[in-house]
Design a protein around this nucleic acid. Structure first.
Length: 564
DNA sequence: CGCGTTTGACCAGCGC
DNA sequence: GCGCTGGTCAAACGCG
């Protein structure tokens, strides 16, 4: 930092020297950048050397024997590095003048060497950065594979639950370089494909595959599968972009998906927010608004506009019971590259949907069904999630399987829409208020990183609130969590990893980690969605649109997952 | 003028 | 078959 000005001065000086013909051709050949950097390094090195020799040489007639250029150079360097100690600088230059020819050559050689070292340093730094990235990716892939191994183990213990999270597997295939040797995984995929005749969430599976194809081909329109799956009535959208989507692949899963059009997964996020919009990294266009039955607040319909034919849609509606709760429902899978923030959310929702549909949810047996889900097994297996001992949901007659991430429950068991039992055992009542469910509780530091994922991008009015500051302070934790989620399409797995990470991070940051936050499975009929997420409109859409820049208060400090 | 929102109309699914 | 509801379309409108 402090040497930067000095470096610039040296660069400037040496450029002048070059222009004045005092630099030989050898130095000039290194180009301006190398020359300058090398000169800068040399300047420091030279100063140090001069300092070591300080006291050995006492002559003071440098200026009288050197060129004007050198004098200028010395003067520049002296000002910065020596703090105005002219004697020191003089000694340095005196040393140079003692043996003018040889010293000049030595200096230039040192400059060349310094520039070479600099270049090498930069190269190494770049390589190190690249390796770090690779290591991170490998770590993520390893974690994903490990969690999937746990799932496989669990599946073998429970043959009835042979439903495999195809999405996570596919994702792993895409993201892990060493995935080509996961024969067991492929076997499981085969088994799953052959078992599509069972009452499985085909729509979700198809959507998952779509996500996989996304990973394979970024802008692959194959996501149209997701669109088909998501469209409960394909014929109803003759003119819609979804209808333009290619037909389902010959894959049996796809065919099965088309056979069960109503089986489309949704992921709903309930967040307590006074802000009209929440940020999920995507761009949305409102295409409709309806008054939903039993809710005075209108429901807004949004479509992803990041791609022409992106099938992802989302619904935004405020909770009838508590209008401070914003329910955002995602549906479908993006067929285009997403920005990191959007990718995180998309992966999260897709993974949640995959988990939901990959389980025996069709039985609608409630708790038993979800308890049999491999994801639930993960919770059981995870020693870092002491409260995740139960996954239950009561039967909900929702037309679509929906998994709800409830971020509205406050720490300490104070719930926004539903109460929390001691130790985080939550009783979540969906907006519809029809199906209370027992939700497993999970410790979360406050504010919840998951909630932070939905940090609002706009606020109706007013300056950033303290909550926003807190959120920024914990951005690193957020990033850790979101990265963990994004790394694994299996939402439950990722969530477990995220929670563990958060807990560790919270301890590291010496931040309080109240255990009032929960992650549970519950029935929610009010919302659902899958895909990417973003801003949510409010009943006051116009005001919401106009408002921006603020940081609405997010009291979301817990996460409850509910499924229907 | 282009883009996004609003809003009434239309369509399909579902229950009675 | 009818009505209700959810979801979507598309013309009208507003804003920058």
């Amino acid at each position: 930092m402090e040497t930067r000005p000095e470096r610039h001065r040296h660069d400037h000086v040496h450029e002048q020297e070059a222009q004045e013909g005092e630099e030989d051709a050898a130095v000039m050949e290194h180009g301006a950048l190398s020359l300058q950097r090398g000169a800068a390094l040399f300047g420091r090195r030279h100063d140090e050397e001069a300092g070591r020799r300080r006291g050995e040489i006492r002559e003071v007639d440098f200026f009288s024997r050197d060129s004007g250029a050198r004098g200028q150079d010395d003067g520049e360097g002296r000002g910065v590095t020596r703090g105005g100690r002219d004697d020191v600088n003089i000694e340095l230059d005196l040393l140079t003048t003692a043996s003018a020819g040889e010293e000049m050559m030595a200096v230039k050689n040192q400059k060349i060497e310094a520039s070479a070292v600099e270049v090498e340093l930069r190269r190494v730094v770049e390589e190190n950065r690249r390796l770090c990235g690779m290591l991170e990716e490998l770590t993520r892939s390893y974690g994903a594979l490990y969690q999937q191994l746990l799932q496989v183990t669990q599946h073998r213990q429970h043959p009835a639950d042979l439903m495999i999270n195809r999405s996570s597997l596919a994702h792993t295939h895409l993201t892990t370089a060493a995935s080509h040797n996961t024969s067991s995984t492929r076997q499981l995929l085969e088994a799953r494909a052959s078992s599509t005749t069972t009452a499985q969430p085909h729509a979700v599976v198809a959507g998952v595959e779509d996500e996989a194809s996304d990973g394979a081909g970024e802008a692959s329109p194959s996501l149209s599968n997701g669109g088909n799956n998501n469209d409960d009535a394909d014929g109803k959208r003759k003119a819609s972009p979804d209808a333009m989507a290619p037909p389902p692949r010959e894959n049996g899963l796809q065919a099965a998906a088309s056979e069960l059009p109503g089986r489309k997964a949704r992921v709903s996020v309930r967040a307590r927010s006074e802000a009209p919009m929440i940020s999920d990294g995507c761009q949305w266009r409102k295409y409709g608004q309806k008054m939903a039955k039993g809710n005075p607040c209108p429901r807004a319909y949004y479509r992803c506009t990041m791609a022409v034919a992106c099938p992802v849609r989302k619904q935004v509606q405020r909770c009838a019971e508590d209008r401070t709760i914003l329910v955002t429902t995602y549906e479908g899978h993006h067929n285009h590259p997403l920005p990191p923030a959007a990718t995180t959310m998309a992966n999260t929702t897709s993974a949640a949907a995959a988990m939901l549909l990959s389980g025996p949810a069709t039985s609608r047996d409630g708790a038993a069904a979800l308890l049999g889900h491999p994801a639930a097994a993960l919770f059981h297996h995870s020693s870092s999630i002491p409260y995740a001992s139960t996954m239950a949901t009561l039967s909900a007659s929702a037309p679509f399987p929906t998994i709800t991430l409830d971020l509205t429950q406050a720490p300490g068991g104070v719930a926004g829409s539903g109460g929390l039992l001691p130790h985080g055992l939550g009783l979540h009542r969906p907006p519809g208020g029809i199906h209370p469910v027992v939700a497993p509780a999970m410790p979360f530091p406050a504010p919840s990183p998951l909630a932070s994922m939905f940090l609002p991008q706009r606020a109706p009015t007013g300056p950033p609130t303290p909550t926003g500051l807190v959120a920024r302070q914990q951005q690193s934790v957020m990033e850790t969590v979101t990265a963990a989620i994004a790394a694994d399409p299996n939402f439950t797995t990722a969530l477990a990893a995220a929670i563990s990470s958060v807990m560790a991070g919270a301890a590291h940051q010496a931040q309080p980690t109240p255990r009032g936050n929960n992650v549970g499975i519950a029935g929610d009929q009010a919302s659902g969605s899958a895909g990417a997420a973003t801003a949510g409109p409010t009943p006051t859409a116009a005001g919401a649109r106009a408002a921006s820049g603020g940081s609405p208060r997010f009291a979301t400090q817990s996460c409850t997952m509910s499924t229907t």
